[in-house]
Design a binder for these strands. Sequence first.
DNA 1: TCCCCCGATTGACCTGCGTCAATTCTGGAC
DNA 2: GTCCAGAATTGACGCAGGTCAATCGGGGGA
Lengths: 234, 234
Amino acid sequence: MRDLCLPLGLDNDDMERLESIVHTRGPIRSGEHLFREGDNFQALYAVKSGSLKTYTIDKQGREHVLGFHIGGELVGLDGIHSGHNRCNAVALQTTSVCALPFPRLEQLIHEVPGLQAQVLRVMSRELTASNQLATDHSAEERLAGFLASLSRRFARRGLPGTRLTLPMPRRDIASHLRLATETVSRLFARFQDDGIVAVRRREVEILDPAALETLGASFDLDGGSARQRNPQQR
Amino acid sequence: MRDLCLPLGLDNDDMERLESIVHTRGPIRSGEHLFREGDNFQALYAVKSGSLKTYTIDKQGREHVLGFHIGGELVGLDGIHSGHNRCNAVALQTTSVCALPFPRLEQLIHEVPGLQAQVLRVMSRELTASNQLATDHSAEERLAGFLASLSRRFARRGLPGTRLTLPMPRRDIASHLRLATETVSRLFARFQDDGIVAVRRREVEILDPAALETLGASFDLDGGSARQRNPQQR
DNA sequence: TCCCCCGATTGACCTGCGTCAATTCTGGAC
DNA sequence: GTCCAGAATTGACGCAGGTCAATCGGGGGA
């Protein structure tokens, strides 16, 4: 297979064992669901290409976008504990994924110590990111932090980090950041006036990455803006 | 030891193995820190008695309360991936915890399959809860959902779920829910006027649990309000 | 017992962002 | 090419909740 593109840092042998249990699923076309809230939880999914959004519908019928997932990222971790998927996952564009059937994955985690460590790490990172998303920040900080984070994630995939095509509409960005669509639109306009980005619909060019990082510094969605750790001991 | 009070559903033998690696730490007095952001990540902590809050300080110096942890709950999961604690943990009252040194825990997870499954489950549940916290709801929904959740958690511990003593000040509740202290205070007053609760400082009596659940229904912090799953397929 | 300090409450006012509404843009369908 | 439905933008306005400020209250220390 050779195409499970998760950055797990496993050696070749372990990676092959992991790939032996996955099966590719796709293409999933834009708007099609990978899974839905309440479905039996059967597998985790690694995005190979394209992108997904995850969301929930609350008891009032309102949609809440939990996150966006591009290539190399994992989806479905929140479904483990209850045995049911806790959110919906829908393709934002033509997308293909690798399914990692959970019972077999659990078995493999047990057999491959390196995999155990990586899975714990991935889940922990997801938790940190979600915690960050739950914090309280202004609309400006949120959008700047979101763009900076997205830019880094694209760059990590080898795509140009300063010239991106957003896979999602404004409405989804807004929902994800707990803003109104109009607020997102106005902020894009403001960032553009300030010379920080050039935006045309879903094409975004980041003209002043430093300014974007500064604006979004306190809303660091993936702990990646500064590689600097915080080495203070008490 | 016999006092690691985590509801992991392990058999006696496995539980004993787990307890053999923990060591009790406490009492931690109110205001003392269990760990701080940036510290080397060394252990997970299970709260035995008392309570903790976890929080971060952002680059502007603002505090964000991530969560509260009472007996039987686990703290520190977000520190795994980076090897450094990602938040601060401070006691809200006299508190004692069990430290689970992570390297030994990892080893034990490998050896005890039942423990592996439980750890994955616990992390997944944390993730679901954090995702929920990140969603967009009115102040009223947030506070009602928070109180309902807290009530359930107390009840799970065998404490009266309708008569609770809040271990945290208004300011921390407000920060956790992304509200102003004054808003929390006003909402308590309103809930009291509506006959839903009786509040006196930190003493809260829930007079109308159903009303509280209804108000907070769409902001379900621990998936516990309704045991009903969502069995729809597709 | 009396302070004293800090947490909580309450009121008045303000503002960031949401809501509503009107255009404009645009990429597919044909 | 033309049409059109949905996406994005822009403006006017309103409100939920934040901010500022004054007061209250109660537990702990001497």
